[in-house]
Design a protein around this nucleic acid. Structure first.
Lengths: 234, 234
DNA sequence: TAGTGGTCTAGACCACCAG
DNA sequence: TGGTGGTCTAGACCACTAT
C-alpha cells in the first residue's frame, strides 16, 4: 500500500513543521514524481489526508495544509463571529441571499410547518482567515420577526432577535451527520463536488419554548471540532 | 462529470427501492460495464456514495447499501444496547480486550493524569444486525472501580458502575470530529484503511463531579446520526 | 499563455473471499 | 479455484488558474 506510505511521509512533513497551515502543497505532478509514482496513486494519498482532515482542496487551485479546527459548541448561543474571535481567529460573513419564500420539504419538516408555508430564508457563507469554511442556510418563521429582512443580515441573527424583537434562544435541538458538498454549496466553499462535509442541523426555540427558526450548516469537515458539555437529567 | 451521473443513477435505484439496505451491489466490473465506463471512474462514483453515507464497503467483500443510521445522543446515559433496542435494532457487543495498563499520551490527557499512570483499558466492537459499526476504547481511572475486570465486560459499563459501585454518570464532556479508520480499528470494522469515520470522544463525570473514565469511539460514519437537545445556561 | 487540477481510458497483477 | 476487490501504471484531453 504505497499510498499509505506517501500519506505518512506527508504527515511527517506537516508535523515536523516543514509544511505550515494554509501553505500550498507542490503540484500533483511534482509530488508524484518525487514519490516516484503516478498521479492516480498520489491522489489516493491526498484523498486520505483530506479524509483525515489534515489537508484540504480548493477547486482547481490545489491542496493546502489545514489550520487547526474551530471549536464549536452547538449548545451555546455564541454566534459565529464571537466564537471565532474568542479563539483568536479572523471571521468574516458574506450574505448570499435573504428572501421571503415558500418552505421546501426539508425546511417545512424542521420547522414543523405545512408545506408551502411562508418563511424567511437567509443564505450565508462564513470565513476564517479568508477561507470559506461553512455554508449556512437559515429558515425562519416570520410571525416572530416581522420585517426581519430590513436589518443587516451580515451580522448575528441572534443579536437582531435580541435587540429588535426582545427574543433569545433558550433551547436547541441539533443533529450532526457527515455528507458531501455538492453544487452551489461546494462552489461557495471553493470546493469540488464530493468534498467531505460535516452537516449540522439546528432547531431553535425562544424563551417561551416556541420554535423560532432552524439552520442547516455545511462545514468543510477539517475546519470544525464539535465540543460540548452536558449535565444529565434523570 | 460522468461519475456524478453514475452516482445519481445509483441513488435513484436506492430511493426507488430497487436496492434495499444491506443488499450487495453488483461486482465493480459489471457495474462499470453497465455504465459503459472503466473501473476507476466507477469507483470514483462509489466513493462519492460512500462519502454521502449511502453505501459502505466491507474490505474485499464489496459494496452494500447503508441501513438508516442509529440515532445517538451523547448527552444521555443510555447505553448502546438499550439505545439500539429502543430503535428496533439488533445490537451485539464483542469484547476485544480488557486489561490493566499504563495510560498512553492521549488517554492521560483525556483523563487528566500523569503519563504512565495505571488505568483500565477496555476495547470493544459493537454491532447492529451483525454489522460492526463502532470500535470503542474505554480508559478508566481505577481508584473508583477496583477489580473492575472481574465483571462481565460485554455488558454495559454504566450498569456495572451502578450495580457494583453505586456510581452513575452525571455529566459528560464530548468532542466530535471526522477522520478515517486505520489499522486494527479498520480491520475490526471490516473496513479498509482510509474509510471515513466519525470520532466521538467522551469524558465522563460521576454524581460527585469526579472524572471517572473516557472513551474514544470510531464509528462507520454512515451508521450514526448524532442528535441532542440542549437548554441554554445563561 | 503555461502549467495546473479535474476527469477519464485501458489496461495489469495480486491476495483474498466465496462457493 | 474463479472471480472479486485493492492497488498501480502510463498515459490523455480539457477547462481553468495564475502570471
Amino acid at each position: 500500500m504505497q499510498y499509505v506510505k506517501i500519506k505518512d511521509a506527508i504527515v511527517e512533513q506537516i508535523e515536523s513543521g516543514q509544511l505550515s497551515p494554509r501553505e500550498k502543497l507542490p503540484a500533483e505532478r511534482k509530488l508524484a514524481e518525487s514519490f516516484d509514482t503516478t498521479r492516480v496513486t498520489l491522489r489516493e494519498a491526498l484523498s486520505l489526508l483530506e479524509a483525515e482532515g489534515r489537508i484540504y482542496r480548493e477547486d482547481r487551485r490545489g491542496w493546502f495544509i489545514s489550520p487547526s479546527p474551530l471549536r464549536y459548541d452547538p449548545s451555546q448561543t455564541l454566534n459565529f463571529t464571537n466564537m471565532a474571535l474568542a479563539q483568536q481567529r479572523t471571521p468574516n460573513t458574506v450574505l448570499l441571499s435573504a428572501q421571503s419564500t415558500v418552505a421546501n420539504k426539508h425546511a417545512a419538516q424542521l420547522l414543523d410547518l405545512q408545506p408551502f408555508s411562508n418563511v424567511y430564508q437567509v443564505d450565508r457563507v462564513r470565513y476564517l482567515e479568508n477561507r470559506p469554511v461553512v455554508y449556512v442556510t437559515h429558515y425562519i418563521r416570520p410571525e416572530f420577526v416581522p420585517d426581519l429582512l430590513r436589518h443587516d443580515l451580515t451580522t448575528s441573527l441572534t443579536d437582531i432577535y435580541r435587540e429588535h424583537y426582545g427574543m433569545v434562544y433558550q433551547s436547541i435541538r441539533y443533529r450532526i451527520t457527515t455528507s458531501t458538498l455538492l453544487g452551489e454549496t461546494a462552489q461557495a466553499l471553493r470546493a469540488t463536488s464530493g468534498t467531505p462535509a460535516m452537516v449540522v442541523e439546528r432547531i431553535n426555540y425562544n424563551q417561551h419554548g416556541e420554535l423560532i427558526d432552524c439552520d442547516i450548516e455545511y462545514w468543510r469537515h477539517d475546519a470544525i471540532s464539535i465540543e460540548s458539555f452536558a449535565t444529565l437529567v434523570r
